[in-house]
């Protein structure tokens, strides 16, 4: 339920789900390997085998199949040329507003997986303390670049 009087929020790029899924697969693989080792170590015990591996399989399936989409849904953003809005969070929902005039500098980050799917992470740095780094993951590369260019143009007014 969005708070009224704030600009309409846009979802992240749908391709971010794939990026999150790749990360989920990596985490699930690590979890399954650890569970496999635990199974081997517990083999000699009286505990019926398969409990640890079974639990790990359930968590891994959740990490790969369900979690990426849910994580993607929790994020939203809006750019109004005056300020950037980012909302995220599950139990505690956080909506951060960064006025463009307060941005110290901007980073555009792209990992190998993000590059493969054509998305990018925008990082705004302010002089503040708690939110000196505000990140927006999973923007389409073109969108992220246009936001960056707009903010940059306002950082250095006029040709110098």
């Amino acid at each position: 339920m969005p708070i009224a009087a704030l600009p309409p929020m846009l979802p992240l790029d749908p391709r971010q789900v794939a990026v999150l899924r790749v990360r989920g697969i990596a985490n699930a693989a690590a979890l399954l390997v650890a569970a496999g080792i635990a199974e081997v170590a517990l083999f000699a015990n009286d505990i019926p085998s398969g409990i640890v591996a079974g639990l790990a399989l359930i968590v891994a399936a959740w990490l790969i199949l369900l979690a990426p989409r849910r994580a993607w849904q929790r994020w939203s953003h809006a750019f109004t040329t005056q300020e950037l809005h980012v909302a995220s969070g599950w139990l505690t929902q956080v909506h951060t507003i960064v006025p463009v005039a307060r941005v110290q500098h901007i980073d555009l980050a792209q990992g190998p997986v993000e590059r493969r799917y054509g998305v990018a992470t925008l990082v705004l740095h302010t002089a503040g303390t708690d939110h000196s780094r505000v990140t927006v993951p999973g923007l389409a590369r073109a969108d992220a670049e246009s936001i960056r260019d707009t903010i940059r143009a306002r950082l250095t007014p006029g040709p110098t």
């Binding site: 339920m1 505690t92 956080v94 307060r102 503040g128 505000v134």
Partner: peptide, 25 residues
Amino acid sequence: VQAVTLSRTWLQRRLDLVTVRVDTA
């Protein structure tokens, strides 16, 4: 004011409340 954050915990959403945090340098 460097950034403004509106945050709502699970309980705050039930009670329709918002905490406004003001980030300063």
